[in-house]
Amino acid sequence: MNTSTEVIAGVGLADQARKSLWPARLDWLQSASGLLLALFMWGHMFFVSSILISKDAMWTITKMFEGYFFFGTAHPWIVSVVVACVIVLFVGHAFLALRKFPINYTQYKLFRGHQKLLRHGDTTLWFWQVFTGFALFFLASVHLYLMLTRPHLIGPYESADRVWTENMWPLYILLLLAVEMHGGIGLYRLAVKWGWFAGSDANASRKNLKTLKWAITVFFLVLGFATLAAYIKIGIEHAPNYGQHYVPTWLQNAPGAVK
């Protein structure tokens, strides 16, 4: 493989099998999948929060993703395809991240004892990252499956009905908290893990990154809760008409409005 094998230590390594390259790849894949998921979540959050602008804005974005403005008709299966991709990423990321979990009670106990004794910020954050990651196995799965199978039920009324009348709001509160915590910590960890933005004074950069991380988390939590509240409000108001689809204002009086 390379000439330095024999001389690496003069301890007969030449006869040994080379170390597997997979740990390197898995490490990279874990980070890459995490990064993609985090970026997706940012985008996703902006899209769903369009409800804060208006129902029409949210409707427009939804239909845009269903290819309505491209094909002239809505194709919710496009959303299903995107969701399927996210599921693949999500499952892949979860699978890779499992390597880092405490795998038995002894490890768990050791880590928790260590965390409590050390009282060190990034160590404590790691625990919360694992904790929220674990919660996401279940919380995110439910949501992703719904989106995969019912892509046509995304919209100002449709989503609001799901949140309120279909009792999804408790799950969404937890999901929101878990996603924003997990993603925020994860992005910060990615930066320090790979030495991004380290600059000439790595300690100062890390401090700034940490501040930025909290700022982003707070921003998305505020945005997220405001959005959720908006859907709940619409959901309560729309409960009597549960199941009815939203029709944008400019089409409400038009014949043959989009379903």
């Binding site: 330095s4 690496i8 080379r18 597997s20 390259l21 740990p23 320090v192 893990k193």
Partner: peptide, 26 residues
């Protein structure tokens, strides 16, 4: 030091080595 990155990979290229680090940075 004459060692190449491949040589260093042999000693720290696994989950007991650099890929085990979870960047808690304590």
């Amino acid at each position: 030091d004459r060692r190449s990155d491949e040589d260093y990979y042999e000693v720290i290229g696994d989950d007991d080595g650099v890929f085990g680090c979870m960047s808690m940075l304590a």
